[in-house]
């Protein structure tokens, strides 16, 4: 149980600055110490994850992004055999297939946009629970 006392590192990867700040606000309100980093596209997220190997616990990943989208990032991580953080993919409701692909590529959970504060918090909490039990 002492595990959960440490700071949980979250990387929010979304091309929309509003979405990013929205997610960080919601996550930072959780009653646990969280460190939040953001990335504006898959490329940024990729370099962050390479640089901070193993540091990031949770990746909140938007699927539709310019440069490198969420799926491409997951593919890249898989190809490089880089350990993936507990990844929650976010997408609009009408792209079921991409979510299926993301889960097949190692994402652990998904979140339909637009999401509510509670849903996001629940997803993060269950991610932390799953990280602790691992």
């Amino acid at each position: 149980m002492s595990e959960s006392k440490r700071t949980i590192e979250v990387l929010i990867c979304d091309d929309s600055p509003i979405s990013r700040s929205l997610a960080s606000t919601v996550i930072s309100k959780l009653p646990i110490p969280v460190g939040i980093n953001t990335a504006g596209n898959g490329k940024e997220a990729y370099s962050y994850l390479i640089e901070n190997k193993g540091e990031c616990d949770i990746l909140l990943l938007d699927i539709n992004m310019p440069e490198m989208d969420g799926i491409e990032l997951l593919r890249e991580m898989k190809k490089e055999d880089t350990p993936l953080p507990y990844t929650i993919v976010m997408s609009a409701d009408n792209v079921k297939r991409t979510v299926v692909d993301a889960l097949s590529l190692g994402a652990k959970d998904f979140l339909n946009k637009p999401y509510t504060k509670t849903t996001l918090q629940e997803k993060i909490e269950s991610a932390i629970k799953s990280l602790d039990s691992a």
């Binding site: 297939r97 692909d101 889960l103 097949s104 994402a107 652990k108």
Partner: peptide, 15 residues
Amino acid sequence: DDFKAFMNLIPNSPL
């Protein structure tokens, strides 16, 4: 294809 991808996910699903 979408259906097959979904079916493939089932045994490996994290959820």
